[in-house]
Structures are given as structure tokens and as C-alpha cells.
Amino acid sequence: MNDQPYLIPAQSVQFEEEIKKSVFITHLAHTPSIDSAKAFVEQIKTKHADARHNCWAFVAGRAEDSMKWGLSDDGEPSGTAGKPMLAQLSGSGVGEITAVVTRYSGGIKLGTGGLVKAYGGGVSQALKLLQTIEKKITTQLQLELDYAFMPIVQSLITQFEAQEVSADYSDQVKLVVDIEQRKVNDFTQAVINKSGAKALVTPLKAN
């Protein structure tokens, strides 16, 4: 599992241009799953039901995870829409993103090269407008410790930028923290070292 953070869209964007009397409207949105990607495609298709084509491509996970890619030419000649759109998305380094390009045809044929340029170019232009945020891959750990070790552990939680999810104060303290996956080993080792191996760290689940 890749535990490195990656970029995702901060919000939806739209880019519109006219090429030889055809209007191309590119929509980009954050879609964290294949289901949400397909739902966004349907939403745009419904909104632009009168358009001749609503071509789409999505990257539902990391940009490089081809198992979560999808595309459609939606009636355009094979390979002229979905493929160049997906190439722009997968090459952008942005994950969890869907592009739908709506085309209102103006009656002038663009040819296969023109279509590739129009669909790929629309996504490329829309990506330039896109603001992104970093998605961190986190996991949850449970810590069991004596009250005496609380100051040490609180200090480590701050140092490793972990978030306290819950705390149970009984005979011992039980804390659940959310922490970046890539920091788990170092954090666990630090807790064990600083507590003289008296604090127990147990992995719970990855997010």
C-alpha cells in the first residue's frame, strides 16, 4: 500500500471554449470513488441532456492507479475523446477526479485529430484552473498507558502531528489517535522507547 499523500481537487471547475462552431464545456469534480465518479457523469449528462456528446474520464484513486480509471467516447469516434481526457487526468498527478466534456456540435466536422485536441485540450485548460489540496493517508492507533506517561505521549502526539480521536480514563488511559500511515513506525517506536516499553500501541484501521 502506498502511504504517501497525494493531491485531490479542492473544488469543482468548469472551462468553456468554442472550436469551429462546436461548444466544448469541460467539468472537473472531486470524486473519491468509482461510484461517485459515475454519479457525477450522470449528473452532467442530465444537466446537458440536449448536448450531442457528454464524454468522460475518471481517476477514482491515485493518479497512477489504473485499476480505478474509466472513460467513454459517448458516440464520438473511438479513441478521440475519453482516451485523451484520461491521459490529461492521469498525467496531472491529481487523484480522485472526474472530467466530463459536453459538446454542443456546430455542424462542422473537426476530424479525429481535431477531436483529440479539443477534448484533451479542454481538460488540460480546466486543470490549470483547478485548486488542489493534499490528501494524507492515515490510520488509527490505540494507545494504552499509565497516567504517568501522559505528558510524554501528548508531546509525541503533537510532534508527529497526530489527532486524538477518543480518550478513556479508567485504571489506565486508552487513547485512539489518527496518524499518517507513513509516520506509524517512527511514532510507535518513540512511544515504546520513551515509556520504557510500558505503553502499548495497537493498530486499528486505515482510512
Score class of each variant (00 low, 15 high):
54 N>E: 05
161 E>S: 13
99 A>K: 02
122 G>C: 07
119 Y>C: 06
187 F>H: 06
4 Q>A: 13
107 G>E: 05
63 A>E: 03
207 N>T: 14
150 M>G: 03
81 A>S: 07
19 I>P: 04
7 L>R: 14
121 G>K: 07
160 F>T: 12
21 K>G: 14
49 A>Q: 14
169 Y>K: 11
34 I>M: 11
137 I>M: 12
29 A>C: 07
164 E>D: 13
159 Q>R: 13
42 E>S: 14
195 S>R: 03
41 V>A: 05
177 V>K: 04
91 G>R: 03
84 P>I: 03
20 K>F: 02
137 I>K: 11
126 A>F: 09
129 L>W: 10
127 L>K: 00
151 P>Y: 01
30 H>D: 00
180 E>P: 10
5 P>E: 06
20 K>M: 00
186 D>P: 06
170 S>Q: 14
60 A>F: 01
138 T>R: 04
192 I>M: 12
23 V>K: 12
24 F>A: 05
145 L>R: 04
72 S>I: 09
147 Y>R: 07
187 F>N: 00
182 R>S: 15
152 I>G: 08
73 D>W: 04
20 K>T: 04
53 H>Q: 09
8 I>M: 08
197 A>R: 11
20 K>L: 04
125 Q>F: 12
94 V>R: 00
154 Q>E: 12
118 A>Q: 00
110 L>K: 01
46 T>W: 08
175 L>M: 08
154 Q>K: 09
176 V>Q: 13
184 V>M: 00
64 E>K: 11
52 R>H: 14
35 D>F: 01
180 E>M: 14
73 D>R: 08
123 V>Y: 04
3 D>A: 09
110 L>N: 01
206 A>T: 15
184 V>N: 00
80 T>C: 05
156 L>V: 12
103 R>L: 04
101 V>D: 03
46 T>K: 12
206 A>P: 11
172 Q>I: 06
61 G>I: 07
55 C>V: 08
71 L>Y: 06
90 S>A: 13
200 L>F: 08
197 A>W: 12
148 A>D: 12
62 R>F: 07
143 L>T: 02
17 E>R: 01
57 A>E: 11
178 D>R: 07
74 D>H: 05
109 K>H: 12
204 L>S: 02
187 F>E: 03
31 T>G: 01
109 K>W: 08
53 H>D: 06
29 A>E: 03
23 V>H: 05
68 K>F: 15
206 A>N: 13
156 L>E: 06
79 G>C: 02
188 T>E: 10
147 Y>A: 11
12 S>L: 06
206 A>F: 13
156 L>K: 09
2 N>E: 07
147 Y>T: 10
4 Q>G: 06
16 E>Y: 08
100 V>Q: 02
110 L>H: 03
205 K>F: 15
70 G>V: 03
71 L>E: 02
11 Q>S: 09
115 L>A: 04
197 A>Y: 13
2 N>K: 10
36 S>Q: 12
59 V>R: 06
14 Q>I: 14
98 T>L: 04
71 L>M: 14
57 A>H: 10
78 S>A: 06
115 L>Q: 02
11 Q>A: 11
202 T>W: 03
157 I>A: 00
16 E>R: 12
70 G>C: 05
142 Q>S: 15
114 G>S: 01
147 Y>P: 07
97 I>P: 04
24 F>N: 00
